[in-house]
C-alpha cells in the first residue's frame, strides 16, 4: 500500500458583484452617514438590507424610510476562533465581538462588529450607536463598529 499523496495550494479568486438598484442607493447614503430601509406597504416591515421584494408578501418595495444609527443590541458573541476575513483572505485577530443590532426605524437586525469584548457592558437590550469612519466609501465598512452607550 502506497503512502497517501495529497496536494495543497491556495487559490486566489476574484469576483465582481452588481449591487442592484436598492443597494446602490443604500450604499450612496452610507457615504453621507445616512441609513435607509425599504418598507413593505403590505405588511409594514422595514427591511435592512433594502431589497426589491418582501419575501412574505411577494410585494415590490418602493417606500424608503430613514433609519437611525442608534439601536438595541439583540444578541452578541465574542469569537475566540481566528475566522478568515473574506475581505482580505487572512485570519482575523481574536477575540472579536459581533452582535445583532436593531436600529431605530428598522424591523430586521444588522450583524456587525462591536467595539468591545467581554461580558461587562455587552448584554441583550443594551443601547448601541454606530461608530462612523471619517473617510467613507459607500460600503458597510463605513460603520467601523457599534459601541455601547449610556
Amino acid at each position: 500500500m502506497s503512502q497517501p499523496i495529497s496536494v495543497s495550494h491556495e487559490m486566489d479568486l476574484a469576483w465582481r458583484y452588481a449591487s442592484g438598484e436598492a443597494m446602490e442607493r443604500f450604499c450612496a447614503g452610507l457615504t453621507d452617514g445616512r441609513i435607509e430601509a425599504l418598507r413593505c406597504a403590505a405588511c409594514g416591515l422595514r427591511y435592512l438590507p433594502p431589497r426589491p421584494f418582501c419575501g412574505d408578501c411577494r410585494a415590490r418595495l418602493t417606500e424608503w424610510v430613514a433609519v437611525g444609527d442608534e439601536g438595541k443590541l439583540e444578541a452578541w458573541t465574542e469569537v475566540q476562533v481566528p475566522m478568515l476575513d473574506a475581505g482580505t483572505g487572512r485570519p482575523r485577530a481574536t477575540p472579536f465581538a459581533i452582535g445583532l443590532v436593531r436600529l431605530e426605524g428598522a424591523d430586521t437586525t444588522l450583524n456587525h462588529f462591536l467595539a468591545e469584548t467581554g461580558a461587562g457592558r455587552l448584554r441583550v437590550g443594551a443601547r448601541v450607536r454606530a461608530r462612523w469612519r471619517s473617510e467613507r466609501a459607500g460600503t458597510m465598512a463605513d460603520i467601523e463598529c457599534f459601541e455601547v452607550i449610556g
Partner: peptide
C-alpha cells in the same frame, strides 16, 4: 471561508462562519 461568501454589500465583512451565526442565535 466558503461560508464567508455571503452578500458582499451587506454582511460579508463580518461573516464568522456557522459558529458566529449560531452563537448569535443561541444568545437570543
Amino acid at each position: 471561508a466558503g461560508m464567508a461568501l455571503t452578500d458582499p454589500y451587506w454582511d460579508r465583512s463580518v461573516a464568522a462562519g456557522a459558529l458566529g451565526n449560531f452563537a448569535l442565535s443561541v444568545c437570543q
